[in-house]
Structures are given as C-alpha cells and as structure tokens.
Design a protein around this nucleic acid. Structure first.
Lengths: 107, 107
DNA sequence: TTATTATATTGCAATATTACGATAAACAAA
DNA sequence: TTTGTTTATCGTAATATTGCAATATAATAA
C-alpha cells in the first residue's frame, strides 16, 4: 500500500501524528530553530540561512504552516514568519499527559 | 531526489527529526497511547488492539524501538514493551527550550 | 519429537516525501 | 511601464514509507 490507514485511528491520534510529521525533517527543525534565534519574527532571509534551494524551503514552510507550527503574515514584499505558541502548547500538553500516565507505571 | 540532506544539518537537529518521525504515524501514536493505558508494561496483545496486520505492527514497533521511544524485553514467549521515559524527557526538554526562547519574542 | 504461540523478516505493490529547475505571481521601486 | 525582489507553484526524478501475505524464527507445551 503506502497510504496510512488514518481512518482507523482517533482524531486526536491523527492530529498528533500530523504535528510530529511536520517536525520530522531536519530542515523543518532547523527552520524552527532559526525562528527562535532572533528576538522578533523573521521577515525574509530564511532561504539564505539553510543549505537548500528556495522552492524546497518554501515547501517546508508550507508544511509547517499547514500544521500550524508557524504563522506567516505578509509584510510588504516579504512574509513575516513566527512560531505559533498555541501549537507548542498542544504538543507540550501531550507530553505532559504522557509524563502523568508514566508516573503510575513500572518503568 | 527524495533523500533528505541530513548531512547539512546538526546532529541534534537530525536526532530530534528522527524522534518526531517515529511519532509521525497514527498507528505509532496509538501504540504509545495503548502502552500508557495499562499500569504495567504490555506483554503481547498489542496486535489485538490495533486494526493492522501483525507484520505491520511489528514494523511500527521496530521503528519505535529504533528511536528509543519504547523498550522491549523478552519475557518468555512474549515480548514486554514499555515507554522509555528517558526519550520522553529528551522531547520534553526540547519543547522546554522552545518555550523558553519564545518568552523573549513578539508572538 | 511435534505442535502451538508470539514475534520478526522478506518481498513487493501502492503511495508519499524530498529536492530542485523552471516558471509564475505579487508587489515595490525606478 | 519595466525592473528587481520575494515567495509560491508546477513538473518530475530519486528515494522513503506503508501495509500485508508469505515465510521464518524462537520459545514453550504436549
């Protein structure tokens, strides 16, 4: 096959998998890292920071946007990107739940 | 292409991407969820819990093991699986770092 | 020994992802 | 208008992932 049987799993399981998939590529981790290295949102210049061609980065940015991990707003000629803290919260909460459930377990 | 240019990114960026990739499929999220629903480690019966064939689940378990998200120890005929709390820590720390850096930002 | 049970591996088809050149679209500046 | 700058999309080749039937392996039970 190749297609994942997403209809067999819960909405939340699919949601979390989608979030993690968006973070499952080193280029996208690097984009998030870069967005965190500066004190403000980044307008432009992401392309110059990574060793990938502009269409490739545009594609990775699109995936991060689709997963709501970053937000992009048009700022004149450039587009201003920043991390979406709500999505970070969502992921942190997921691991908080895991941590909580692990407390009652043998390992 | 299709192959990710992992050599262009840092070891830590690749490590985090590998962890997230292991969690990027709803079946693997469901396996982690299931391992958390019981008070002890699970020996056997994972196959009966998910709507996938045994070889498929075995493959997903292997990926979770390779990423150190779960540990498996042989327990007689069956294999006993449980979450690896060290890896959960690692991911939580990553988001702790993100959260910390976000504090100084505009969004 | 021969089942039986549980898990892993192999092989392969269907599908998805990654990367980038070429090109398009949007917009500001000249 | 034309030119330059920035980002997005298209098209496509290379590679990776997903799922499962068939089979193999490993350990226990009879």
């Amino acid at each position: 096959m190749g297609a994942s049987k997403s209809e067999s799993f819960s909405v939340e399981q699919n949601e979390m998998a989608t979030l993690f998939k968006a973070l499952s590529h080193p280029a996208r981790i690097a984009i998030v890292d870069y967005l965190l290295t500066v004190d403000s949102c980044i307008c432009g210049d992401i392309v110059n920071e990574l060793p990938l061609a502009q269409p490739t980065i545009s594609q990775h940015l699109k995936e991060l946007k689709n997963a709501n991990i970053i937000k992009g707003t048009i700022e004149g000629t450039a587009i201003c990107y920043c991390i979406n803290p709500d999505t970070i919260d969502k992921i942190e909460n997921h691991f908080g739940m895991i941590r909580h459930k692990l407390k009652n377990k043998c390992c």
